[in-house]
Design a protein around this nucleic acid. Structure first.
Lengths: 204, 204
DNA sequence: TAAATTGGCGTACAGTTGTAAGCTCAATGT
DNA sequence: ACATTGAGCTTACAACTGTACGCCAATTTA
């Protein structure tokens, strides 16, 4: 095997090890370089052949998580084309992501308010993509001005993220209820933004 | 000084030390017993005379934070009686809380999705109080059914909390803009919940 | 083929952590 | 007045952390 291939392989092993150690009880900040290295099957000092420090690894994980999020968006887009309902389809797709990749979601959730400004910025960027995408659909559907669509989308993403966080601590049989509640909230939001915007325009 | 008094005093010193060490770069999880003890002016092992472990201290901090939150609610209530506008008054009061007690808010924000189930539950309880209080006002103002008021209040609290989190990383001169955006979102929410609820009832 | 590069390893060290054991001594209870 | 209690201390230890240094061996390059 070529040297570059092998290097990439153990790099992946490190990333994989880090992700696998994340859990409800263990955040990225509480991972240790040594532990990660151990699980990746390399010596502690070999870690430095791939990352300058744990922070660099962390940013890589966030990027990776962002990638999955974008994959999710593509999936949601397809479903929306078929199904038609932007809101319920988006929420349901997101909830599937949360349940299927709970540690990845947890990473985003925690580092969004974590102790590293760089991490927070990285997560914010990923979420920004997410809400921009949603805003695109809202514009198409409700034909409202860009600024309002963006603000509306951000609120919706906030609400959906929060529901995802709740889901992490809720028993599985409550996921349906959580999903429905959130869909209701988003519908209110959409309805309110549309009619309130109109009434404001009418007044002007 | 009586023994009980002295004990209470150093207990407060420990709590104070812990709070003062929290910052944008340092979360509760990254505090060490020794550091806290050092700043509190006691020997590391003396810590145990007051708390069984750091977790117990952490729960105490969350309780303390909850107390401040309730104090905040009282303040908001008074202002609402005078001012009239539930939404803008609430948001503005909350933003003041965030700026004036940023470390306390950070604690709630982080432990809400932290690695301790007990912490998460404790924070959830405090936030629950908060949204129940808001729901009370919404019921009074919009005369909508309890269930809907609660759901609406939760969405609003979610949005306000999220704005608070954004504010922590934003320059001071953007606070006004952040506040206004959030007020708009909450108005949409209120408007949507009211009219969507009506239309739903009309359909039935 | 000879030389250079480099991923991975072992060893080593200094620092920090939580906490167990046992002492002191002033406030309290009798 | 004497005995008890308990907050706070010192010392000590074992576990872990990140990482500097130098070596090896295999791939890559010249």
């Amino acid at each position: 095997m070529s040297r570059a291939q092998q290097k990439e392989r153990t790099r992946k092993a490190i990333i994989e090890a880090a992700f696998s150690q994340l859990s409800a009880e263990k955040s990225f900040a509480s991972l240790s370089l040594r532990e990660v290295a151990r699980e990746a099957g390399i010596a502690p000092t070999s870690f430095y052949r791939h990352f300058a420090d744990m922070d660099e690894l962390g940013l890589t994980l966030v990027d990776e998580a962002g990638l999955m999020l974008r994959q999710l968006m593509r999936q949601a887009r397809q479903r929306i084309e078929k199904n038609g309902s932007v809101i319920s389809t988006s929420v349901e797709t997101f909830m599937e992501f949360v349940t299927g990749n709970s540690n990845v979601f947890r990473l985003l959730l925690r580092e969004r308010s974590g102790t590293s400004a760089a991490f927070r910025a990285a997560v914010a960027r990923e979420i920004q993509h997410f809400s921009a995408e949603l805003a695109h659909y809202l514009r198409k559907e409700t034909a409202c001005p860009d600024e309002l669509a963006q603000l509306q989308a951000e609120a919706m993403v906030t609400l959906v993220f929060h529901t995802g966080a709740d889901a992490l601590d809720a028993p599985l049989d409550q996921y349906g209820s959580l999903t429905n509640r959130t869909i209701t909230q988003l519908r209110w939001m959409a309805h309110g933004a549309a009619s309130y915007g109109r009434s404001k325009i009418n007044k002007a």
